[in-house]
Design a protein around this nucleic acid. Structure first.
Lengths: 191, 191
DNA sequence: TTACATACGGAGACTGCCTCCGTTTACTCC
DNA sequence: GGAGTAAACGGAGGCAGTCTCCGTATGTAA
């Protein structure tokens, strides 16, 4: 008899989990942080008990939905690296990030609700985002385009700001300019 | 008999309002978004009814506390303009902004809770922040240090990001580097 | 097919936001 | 100074949202 059995989850549980995740993304995208757990359960046609067994707190659910999206973004960074010169790849990825936000692919408003703010939420996703950024920046440094002290986290901070200012008019154009400023400000030879 | 009498508020009301605001700042600073209205009322030794007469919703209270702080920040921009060269004043103001965040002078986590996210909250404070930024940037453009297409909003976005990443290790140093990147990236002659 | 671990659903405890209204208090006018 | 009144106060409680508990149902392994 093995110490830890680790039976794989029942088929209905697996189905439910994925179904809930899908509904949750929809609801959060539409209703933002106002979305209620009971409502999500109702729409997914499960009891609140079931919802809470899969995602023990509201935060856990938001985090799960969010992580799903971030994983897709991170994958794109790798792809760009193989397709274009380093600085272009970095720029393209930052612009893609903005597009995701623009297309409501990420559940912006709901993220505000997570205890401890975004920072706490990002904790789970940080390695992913950081990895994607670090890779892109590293390559741009290696190619000699960016200064060698360039720190990917600085870019992360700026882009998080974009995240939170989508209600300001003209946010998208401003975000694109910001990308250019960041690149220009980190180039070798910039004052 | 005048059309609008506009009696000035009763002394006890005025006192209570200010007292509540002070307590609220304390509580929000300590407990973040978890702070409850009833708790604030209890600590301020007033009934919930009183609290809600002064600040009709939770958001209104947060906004009032926040605005208080932002007004202080905006005033500093003017002061710096009179004391140092344009680019220095801009840098100094951005660094001051970071210091406020660092010193927990601003009720960071609580801001997340405002309906519609920070964007909505910033709506009230936007003219102030924007004015402070616009003035500083304008002067730096007029002096020929920054490119003439420089847009203050781009800086705002980046700094909002700093706001939300204070849980990441080394955020303060990173924020300061970000300030330098922004200035370098907006200088005349930057790529 | 049986037995049981696993998962399900929903009633309801608990908490937080906010309202309503009877009571109290500061200000005004004589 | 005292009476009258508009303004402000406090707190009981409505309503809604998060999360728990537990009796019931179901998938899975032997």
């Amino acid at each position: 008899m093995p110490a830890t059995v680790e039976r794989r989850p029942r088929a209905d549980a697996q189905r439910n989990r994925e179904h809930i995740l899908g509904i949750a993304k929809e609801v959060f995208t539409r209703d933002g942080e106002a979305a209620s757990m009971d409502d999500i359960a109702r729409r997914a046609r499960v009891g609140p008990g079931t919802l809470y067994r899969h995602f023990p707190t509201r935060d856990a659910l938001i985090e799960a939905v969010y992580r799903n999206e971030v994983e897709k973004l991170a994958a794109a960074a790798e792809r760009f690296a193989g397709e274009m010169p380093p600085v272009e790849a970095l720029r393209a990825w930052m612009l893609l990030f903005i597009d995701h936000v623009a297309g409501k692919m990420l559940i912006l408003p709901a993220m505000n609700a997570v205890a401890g703010g975004t920072a706490r939420l990002m904790e789970g996703a940080r390695p992913l985002i950081h990895g994607a950024f670090a890779g892109s920046v590293q390559r741009a440094m290696a190619s000699g385009d960016l200064r060698s002290e360039t720190n990917p986290d600085d870019f992360v901070r700026a882009l998080v700001g974009v995240f939170y200012t989508t209600a300001m008019p003209g946010w998208e154009a401003s975000a694109r300019r910001l990308v250019e400023i960041l690149i220009a400000g980190s180039r070798k030879g910039a004052a």
